[in-house]
Amino acid sequence: MKTKKRFTALSLALMMAGLSLVGCGSAASTTTAAAAPETTSNTTGGKQYTIGVLQLIQHPALDKTNKGFVDAINASGLSVRFDQQNASGEQSACQTIAEKFVNDRDDLIFAIATPAAQAAAAATEEIPIVISAVTDPAASGLVATNNAPGGNVTGTSDLTPVREQIDLLKQMFPDAKTVGILYCTSEANSALQLEMAKQACTDQGLTAKEYSVSSSNEIQSVTESMVGNVDVIYIPTDNTIAAGIST
């Protein structure tokens, strides 16, 4: 009952803040505070809530997601303390951070990106979890269905129109024959988009070749191996690849 009341109060706060929530290794050394947002919201008195923010990796798009969430909560006028944590792209760090939030008995967890969301969902079935930057929550095992999530997880999906992107690629590069698809094997969202992209390539008469990395450290060498073997490179919505390429 206590958990239900806590969920109701924070859910109301999120709606007040104008958010559209739809169904959708090492510890200390790799766990660092995420940059930017304030740690405590403006307060009008009353109970203070604690929200644990678990961000997979530092990247402009994810940073903006983080800031947008914090700004919206701050605008609600509730008294909220944010525990900002960044996993630096490490799945083991995601698990450690999620367990920390559970042990701290946070009122809500905001998980940014699929691996972060999966770690949070695995750590608790009681604390409400809001997810963002997740391509397909249902396919990632986070919710029962995207239309009726059930359980303690809800949030938004960032699935891109993969088929339309491949169609556009064909229009822009009509002489292309082979498409190299670069993705990270540790991201469930990328595995889903990989299959969608391969099917779209087949329908366009293109040959799709898979190129995978397990971490950002492998991006440069794998990308170099694609040169001369593919005509164009397609990258799905993949946080590890996006963060690695920018550096």
Rank of each mutant, 00 (worst) to 15 (best):
V143R: 07
G141V: 15
S132V: 12
T145L: 14
A148K: 15
G151T: 14
T145H: 12
S157N: 09
P149F: 02
G150P: 14
L159H: 12
T154V: 15
E126W: 07
P137E: 06
N146R: 12
L159I: 15
E125H: 08
L142C: 13
N146H: 10
V143H: 05
S157T: 15
G150A: 13
T145P: 01
T135Y: 05
E125A: 13
A138K: 15
A148S: 10
A138C: 13
S157R: 05
A138I: 12
T154F: 08
G150F: 01
T135D: 02
A138W: 09
G151Y: 11
S132W: 02
A138P: 07
L142R: 14
V130M: 00
G150R: 03
L142F: 10
T154N: 07
V153Q: 03
P137H: 03
A139E: 11
I127L: 03
P137V: 08
T154P: 09
E125Q: 12
I129A: 03
T154D: 09
D158F: 01
P149R: 00
A144F: 06
E126G: 06
V134P: 14
V134I: 07
E125P: 01
N152M: 07
T156Q: 11
N152P: 03
V153W: 02
G141W: 11
G155I: 02
G141T: 10
V143M: 06
E126L: 12
V153N: 07
P128T: 05
E125V: 10
G155D: 00
A139H: 06
E125L: 10
G141P: 15
D136S: 13
T156F: 02
T145G: 13
D136L: 14
D136N: 14
V153F: 02
N152Y: 02
V130A: 00
E125T: 12
P128I: 08
N146T: 15
V143E: 04
E125M: 06
T124K: 05
N152C: 05
G150C: 08
S140Y: 07
G141I: 15
N146S: 06
V130R: 00
I129H: 03
A139G: 13
N152D: 05
T145N: 12
A148Q: 15
T135V: 06
P149C: 03
L159Q: 13
A144R: 08
G150V: 07
D136I: 13
S157H: 06
I129V: 09
I127A: 00
A133H: 00
P137R: 07
T124D: 02
V130E: 00
N147R: 14
P137C: 11
N147P: 02
A138D: 12
P137Q: 08
G151R: 14
